[in-house]
Write a protein that binds this DNA or RNA. Sequence first.
DNA 1: ACCATAGGTGACTAATTAGTCACCTGTCAA
DNA 2: TTGACAGGTGACTAATTAGTCACCTATGGT
Lengths: 110, 110
Amino acid sequence: MVLRVMDDDLVFKALADPTRRFLLDLLFQRDGRTLKDLESGLEMTRFGVMKHLKVLEEASLVVTRRSGREKLHYLNAVPIRMIHDRWIDKYTEPRFSAVLALKDELGSKE
Amino acid sequence: MVLRVMDDDLVFKALADPTRRFLLDLLFQRDGRTLKDLESGLEMTRFGVMKHLKVLEEASLVVTRRSGREKLHYLNAVPIRMIHDRWIDKYTEPRFSAVLALKDELGSKE
DNA sequence: ACCATAGGTGACTAATTAGTCACCTGTCAA
DNA sequence: TTGACAGGTGACTAATTAGTCACCTATGGT
């Protein structure tokens, strides 16, 4: 068995597109959808949606299962957790950065 | 005072580049660095680094403060939290999706 | 006052990526 | 076994983006 390491770059690149994020939103609402199902909610050809799903699948953000002539799509949140853990220190409180951000916001009073 | 809503798209686009993620890593290690400081850790001209920092700043992932002729850069983790919260259900346990992912991994025994 | 230093801008090139289309494969039901 | 349906591929175009360069502004030390 090959232990495949999750590629950071694929995950972030996959999340960079609004259509793909919307697809994740749809799958977050309800899992196990087919391409046809997902396609119907978008202003795009089937091919575009299929390409986006492929990108999500290669990033492990979506996991699929075949069932006859249908392909069912499931959301996998594991990579999302990894993003979170990369820059959010479990032991350090949210004290500093957020305060700075607010300060910045208050500073620019357009 | 204008309450500016954080733009999702800017955040995800900003995170899509490996150089920018590395910059966030550097700032995660130690905050309050100057452009010169950050530049020295990268194989890229000053202009490239500056452009990346600008993208991070516009996405609110980095917050800056001027000090004389220097510009200090701080990490802001708030947008990262928002990504997490978007697709990770606080009340639902990690049970299902992760299991599917593992199953998929075991299934493809190349 | 001078010069070195830190940061900034607009224009340009090369590379990447979104979206579409013509065409193909596999599955199910009458 | 035929036709409708679900999914898939490779090639192409248009748009976006990374990285560099010439040139500019502001600050601080001596």
